[in-house]
Simulated scan of single mutants.
Amino acid sequence: MSETSPIVVFDFDLTLTKWDTAERFFRWLLKRDPWRLALVAVALPVLAATILFTRRRTWLVRFAVWVATLGRGPAALPGLIEQHVQSFPDGPGSVFVPAAVERLNAHLAQGHRVVIATGCLEPLAQALLRHGGLSHVPLAASTVRPFLGGLVRDQHCFGPNKVPILKARGFAPPWAVAYTDHHADLPVLKLSAECYLVSPKPECLALIKQALATEATILTWR
């Protein structure tokens, strides 16, 4: 593998994994302490009004993440993440889709430069990759910072943000291949020669077909 090898970009949640890993982690944190769920419930009317006004769930997600981590600093995350991962009924590695991992490994075997770009929390994605035997694969993920006694996202590796973040990590476009399940990755898909959509929802598929100049290949891994 060299710096001139083709670059292959994989999304993480619902592309390599069976579920949205960050959402499941923060739901797990909230459910551990009833008072956290109660705090979210009390704030729901205000948050719902915000969603109706802006047509975005951003503030709801930010608030839920902050409540889930309230009273916990960055140093507490690794231990909480490990507890969460060990709670999976079928084991820590059960989050990954076998066919997706097989495809990723096939690219590596061909000497391609593979990178995972995800909105998932960096330490969570790192832990999951470690348990799945994929810790050797470069990762670009979201980071958090302390805020009013909890944690909030700092650098969000999502949507158009993925492009500069990947570039900063040495994986500048254009890319040879991109894999994703969601139209939020259109900025990445548009800069990729070959595109694969993993079990996309109908509305997602329609948006991507409309935006791309070339046809994407559908993969039914999930």
Rank of each mutant, 00 (worst) to 15 (best):
L80G: 04
L124G: 14
A117G: 15
E23S: 15
D11S: 12
L30C: 08
A213N: 07
L134C: 12
I51N: 01
T4A: 14
L189Y: 08
L104A: 12
A49T: 02
L212G: 08
H182D: 08
A75M: 01
A216R: 06
L197H: 07
Q126L: 04
P174K: 09
L197N: 07
Y196E: 01
L52T: 00
Y196Q: 04
H112D: 13
V67M: 10
E122Y: 02
A216L: 03
R103W: 01
C120A: 15
V65S: 02
L16G: 15
V95N: 05
L37G: 15
D181P: 13
F96V: 12
P92F: 06
I208L: 06
N105W: 02
I51K: 08
T17Y: 11
H136Y: 07
L16K: 09
E215I: 04
E203Q: 14
V152L: 15
L129T: 12
I7F: 02
V65Y: 09
L30G: 12
P164F: 10
K167L: 00
V95C: 07
R145G: 01
A41R: 05
V95F: 10
D33A: 06
G73A: 06
C157F: 11
S192K: 09
P187N: 06
A106K: 06
T50E: 06
S135K: 10
